[in-house]
């Protein structure tokens, strides 16, 4: 079977909702049925066939040509692999449970990996705000799985994150790990207000910009779990293991909230 490939005929005229293009919703559909799926978000009711050239027949291996207007890629994904050649929009991998989403460009819309409980998202470029963060009104952001970003990410990364790991090889914007209740964010540099209002969870970075005074220094440690984490990160994201420090400074906080989280810097 050949990879099920969706090639954009032209830049889409509007934002597209691609939540239908996942393994469990394409299984059993023939080429005509796939082309008839409505993905447009205006009253034009644009279909897959209007916008994409479709080839291949394996819904467990989906390839998409990317664009920043493609929303909900891999939403609720339960298995299989989605490869995006180019950029992606809002809600990439939202609430995914298993499988792999790989983006060769950047994610231009917020909330990538929000409410995901398993699987892996790999972003080769940058990502916008609230990667692994909660959408408005949601109790949790990322709740499992792994997100890796080779570039930089915007503000509110891991806002209300609950579980799982977010690895950013570049810089993270304002309020990373805000209101976090669990999980791990590993980055080169954290921006201002890191961990604002976090209850539990772990933030790890080489440097942190202007850490809030509600994070209390607790000393310098050689923590055994960092060795295990470094080995695991290196196996998942080759080269990123070096982001895990060996003899870091540890801060506890946010004392404004429960205060059982930690920021590890070194």
């Amino acid at each position: 079977m050949a990879a099920l490939t969706f090639t954009l005929k032209a830049t889409p005229p509007e934002r597209l909702d691609l939540s239908a293009l996942v393994l469990e919703r394409l299984t059993g559909l023939d080429a005509d049925a796939i082309k008839a799926l409505v993905v447009g978000t205006s009253r034009d009711g644009l279909t897959v066939g209007d916008l994409f050239d479709v080839s291949g027949d394996d819904p467990a291996d989906i390839r998409l040509s990317g664009d920043e207007r493609l929303d909900n890629i891999g939403r609720g994904l339960k298995g299989g692999r989605i490869t995006v050649e180019g950029d992606a929009g809002i809600y990439l991998g939202r609430a995914m449970k298993a499988g792999l989403i790989a983006v060769s460009g950047s994610v231009r819309g917020p909330y990538a990996g929000t409410a995901m409980t398993g699987g892996t998202i790999r972003i080769a470029g940058d990502a916008a705000d609230a990667v692994g963060g909660a959408v408005p009104g949601a109790m949790h952001g990322q709740a499992g799985g792994l997100i890796t970003v080779a570039g930089h990410v915007g503000a509110y990364a891991g806002d209300r994150m609950r579980r799982g790991v977010l690895v950013v090889e570049g810089y993270v914007g304002d309020a990373a790990g805000a209101r976090m209740v669990g999980g791990t964010i590993l980055a080169r540099t954290l921006g201002t207000r890191a961990g604002a209002g976090m209850k539990r969870g772990t933030l790890i970075a080489k440097t942190v910009a202007d850490l809030e005074p509600t994070f209390v220094p607790t000393g310098t440690y050689a923590m055994p779990f960092l060795t295990i984490l470094r080995k695991w990160v290196e196996s998942e994201v080759p080269g990123a293991g070096a982001l895990v420090p060996s003899n870091p400074m540890r801060y506890r906080g946010d004392m404004a909230a429960l205060g059982k989280g930690e920021v590890i810097v070194g």
């Binding site: 604002a196 850490l211 005074p213 509600t214 209390v216 220094p217 946010d254 004392m255 404004a256 205060g259």
Partner: peptide
């Protein structure tokens, strides 16, 4: 606000 939250809750600050 964060400092006040910490001190109202009688928690330490840096």
């Amino acid at each position: 606000l964060s400092l006040l939250r910490a001190r109202v809750g009688q928690k330490p600050v840096a």
